[in-house]
Design a protein around this nucleic acid. Structure first.
Lengths: 132, 132
DNA sequence: CTACGGGTTCCAGTAGCTGGAAGGTCAAGC
DNA sequence: GCTTGACCTTCCAGCTACTGGAACCCGTAG
């Protein structure tokens, strides 16, 4: 499966896929003529990377996440600890997205068409120092 | 309130805060001697940016999000449409995080200490083409 | 065998910071 | 008033994670 198809199936531009190979994330096989040849597993790893990157994980974090299921000897407590830390991080991100969503929704519902100088959201935000 | 405090309260490094001023996101007042002077509203905008950036929104998207509550005349349907699109995007991100979380959790629970050559997760992933 | 839509490498540029140098500000203590 | 040290300023260079472009190679269809 060459890079165009891999791009289509993973949702990543070819450029990015080549870059991920450069930095050692997903290393496809090569055909006799030098074309990259992606396996279904490669594709899933690329999809996984696409998801994780779009959700705010750094490339290095993605490398960790990726190693979690690339690692055939998933026996160490270290690996489990990393996975659990990532799960906690994901939970935090979900909570923050939910709060961001509430904020925007509130905005849409309560402020639209309102031309008073101060919006209730702004007031609420300006009133406190550390919350959310 | 000068930049050190702003950094502390927003969770953003001073460097980043100055950068955000450079690109026109949050423009604080200045004291007579040239120090940046952040208002509570500025702080909330910085916190907002910190959250949104860490959740994978680009700086340009953050600029849009920010304008939603900076805009005193929030009357246009355009603005509402942007906010609603962002809410949809957030929902998508939440769903993806949830799926990523399930994946990792499954991994932690079912693969740990397993030294068979193939992990159930890998098998499952390799088996399908387009789904989650 | 030529066209052309892929692929390849390499190099340069962009976005979003991040570190460091060189120097100005301010409150505390002598 | 003067010094010290933490904190501020600008500016410039470097880094991460791509992204675009040039120049060239591969493979199939006509």
């Amino acid at each position: 499966m060459n890079i165009g198809i891999a791009s289509e199936r993973s949702g990543l531009p070819s450029k990015t896929i080549r870059y991920y190979e450069d930095i050692g994330l997903v290393r496809p096989a090569r055909t006799g003529s030098g074309y990259r040849d992606y396996s279904p597993i490669d594709i899933h790893e690329l999809r996984f990377l696409q998801r994780a990157r779009s959700l705010g994980f750094s490339v290095d974090e993605c490398r960790q996440l990726l190693s979690l299921y690339q690692d055939r000897n998933r026996e160490s407590a270290d690996v489990k600890a990393i996975a659990e830390a990532k799960v906690a991080e994901i939970d935090r991100k979900i909570a923050e997205l939910a709060s961001l969503r509430r904020l925007l929704n509130h905005l849409v519902e309560h402020c639209q068409g309102d031309d008073r100088p101060d919006c209730p959201i702004i007031d609420e935000l300006a009133g406190e120092g550390t919350a959310h």
